[in-house]
Design a binder for these strands. Structure first.
Length: 613
DNA sequence: GCCGTTTTCGGCCCGACTGTTTTCAGTCG
């Protein structure tokens, strides 16, 4: 077959694109008042988004059967997804688009406008796009439609403005301080007993789409007033007696819900979500003849739980489920069986194993980083400045690394109750070799290896590259394994299961890099690593003193979302234990491969049992 | 269209706010 006859290769559709098509189906069906199906398509869209591997891979490996096996996807939607992946089109969706040729996703993204409204606008005024809608509102043609009025027109125009100013989901690390400041202000309102940020922020998802605040108070009016008068508020979407919605200056929307203190736990649970977790909880309640809503858990008219979350879970026969696990990914089954692990806590880091200083591209001296680490309650840090290949950062060569190690030795002689470890963040070259000689790596306390370039290699090449670096007997930790930058740079295409298997085999620790735009490994991969018995390091990757706090805040959040316990995290141990874990299982003196017998899994399982006490 | 401690049919989470309504539909979370 001559090459010219071949079809040009079409880029496989991403999960996000498949989910968008499913969501569009849901909106069109909703518009046509089709019962139940919209919910099914929405649920399927969520399921697709939750996958940790591309659908097109699953389809390529297992065909239609592999797709239909996914939760929330059955024969009908499975067949349509398959069609979409094979042909790039979904005929049923195309038919709906032909019948009602409107930008339904765009139009319904306006606050307060849903599919029913879009239908009326299209049928009466021929509105198809956001531009059509803006024109119709400006010309005053919308106000005469049924269920619309002058207020609706103004609301839509304002919605269009706000849409233009929305930044979409924002990094957890940037939003967290904003949320905390709002919590603090709400707690100052007289009569407020509790004020908490809920939603995906409380679950510590890596990005946040909006903020939710749950306040327990007697005087609802005072809380709502304080909320809409927050200095950050640029627009009030809605304001009722117990509820308010506003737009903040950073482009995020924030919701407030005020409840009686008796309901606080139920409300906090409800507004923490996730939606899938809530639905599963409600079904569980229903099967027990109970009703769960934001006011409590009820048997008939009688509230049997609601003041605290713990009370609600207990009354449902569940162990308490930490917010970070509430994604309906097996946590409810685990809670029923008492299998919720004791997650690593936010105050449990004792060291930090990735820190840059003014020896390369950091802004502070080793001593300044030590002081900042001490202030956070840490008792050891590793100095891991960049190496030769990263010339832009003034990366160290062998001689300079040894010079720095000597400076650290002298510093340690002066320090009391604190230990500085010598180290490096060596560069993994495109072929998997390192940019620092083994003889020098052998003399450092902590060797991290990381990818800093050639990000677009094929999966095979990139995986081979990383595995080769991990096989180096001196490499202790794989730093920011996929080298992603959230919202900016795609992760390196790695066979993550192969990397995890190699980590177990070689005794290499996988890092959770806690910089807000990295969070790498990400939560789903952490969970797979934990299940495989990998050891983890939770590091700040700090380039200045203020970055150090990211490890205990964002890094631990990712570890918890990955179901990690303290036993899984090497730098939650004493410095001696940490070093032993890093160096354990290295090649023996005879240069034989590391023993594979030391599985991190058996270590962590053993320690986990011990850690119960 | 999906799913199963109500299992292959008959259910499908629940309540507040808004704007247009004189009793409620649409939207949102």
């Amino acid at each position: 077959m001559p090459p010219a006859r071949r079809q040009p290769a079409r880029r496989p559709l991403s999960n996000a694109e498949v989910a968008r098509a499913l969501r569009e189906m849901a909106l069109f069906l909703e518009m046509r008042d089709v019962p139940f199906k919209p919910r099914a398509y929405e649920k399927a869209a969520l399921a697709v988004e939750a996958l940790d591997r591309p659908l097109h891979e699953i389809a390529a490996e297992r065909g239609l059967a592999g797709v239909e096996e996914l939760p929330g996807i059955g024969r009908g939607i499975g067949r349509r997804i398959h069609e979409l992946l094979e042909t790039g089109r979904m005929e049923d969706l195309e038919a709906l688009r032909r019948e009602t040729p409107v930008d339904i996703v765009g139009l319904t993204s306006i606050e307060g406008l849903g599919p029913k409204g879009v239908r009326v606008l299209y049928e009466a005024l021929g509105v198809r796009t956001l531009e059509d809608l803006e024109r119709a509102c400006r010309e005053g043609r919308v106000r005469s439609l049924p269920h619309f009025g002058e207020r609706s027109e103004r609301k839509i125009l304002r919605g269009l403005e706000l849409l233009a100013g929305t930044a979409g989901r924002q990094l957890l690390g940037l939003v967290l301080p904003v949320a905390r400041a709002i919590e603090a202000r709400l707690r100052e309102v007289p009569g407020v007993e509790r004020a908490d940020a809920a939603g995906s922020l409380r679950r510590r998802r890596e990005t946040v789409g909006d903020l939710d605040f749950v306040v327990a108070a007697r005087d609802f009016e005072a809380v709502a007033r304080a909320f809409v008068e927050l200095p950050d508020v640029v627009h009030v979407h809605a304001r009722g007696e117990t509820k308010a919605m506003v737009r903040l200056a950073n482009g995020l929307d924030a919701d407030l819900r005020v409840v009686e203190p008796e309901c606080h736990g139920a409300a906090l649970c409800y507004f923490t979500g996730s939606k899938a977790h809530n639905v599963a909880l409600r079904r569980l309640a229903q099967r027990q003849g109970l009703k769960l809503n934001e006011y409590g858990l009820f048997r008939g008219e009688k509230r049997i739980a609601g003041r605290t979350e713990e009370e609600v879970y207990e009354a449902l026969g569940l162990a308490f489920i930490p917010p970070e696990l509430r994604e309906d990914r097996g946590e409810i089954e685990a809670a029923l069986e008492g299998r919720i692990p004791e997650l690593i806590g936010y105050g449990e880091l004792r060291g930090d194993l990735q820190i840059q200083t003014d020896w390369t591209d950091g802004s502070a001296s080793i001593e300044e980083m030590v002081e900042a680490a001490r202030a956070l309650g840490l008792s050891y840090i590793a100095i891991t400045d960049h190496t030769r290949d990263l010339a832009m950062t003034g990366g160290s060569d062998e001689a300079r690394l040894l010079e720095q190690a000597e400076a650290i030795r002298k510093l340690n002689a002066r320090l009391r109750g604190f230990r500085v470890l010598s180290g490096a963040e060596v560069n993994i070259r495109p072929d998997g070799s390192l940019d620092i000689a083994d003889e020098v790596l052998a003399r450092l306390d902590v060797v991290g290896a990381a990818i800093h370039g050639s990000f677009r290699q094929s999966r095979e090449v990139a995986t081979r590259r990383v595995l080769r670096a991990m096989e180096n007997p001196h490499v202790d930790i794989l730093f920011h394994p996929t080298a992603r930058s959230i919202g900016r740079r795609e992760p390196v295409d790695l066979d993550i299961d192969a990397v995890i298997a190699a980590a177990v085999r070689t005794g290499t620790v996988l890092e959770i890099d806690a910089m807000p735009d990295r969070l790498d490994l990400k939560d789903e991969y952490v969970r797979r690593a934990v299940e495989a018995g990998c050891l983890l390091a939770v590091d700040s990757d700090a380039h200045q003193p203020s970055h150090l706090a990211y490890a205990g805040e964002l890094g631990i959040a990712v570890a918890r979302r990955g179901w990690a316990t303290r036993a899984h995290v090497v730098n939650a141990q004493s410095v001696e234990r940490c070093l032993a874990l890093l160096k354990d299982g290295r090649k023996g003196p005879g240069g034989r491969p590391r023993r594979t017998g030391r599985s991190a899994g058996s270590t962590s399982r053993g320690r986990r049992r011990a850690g119960r006490h």
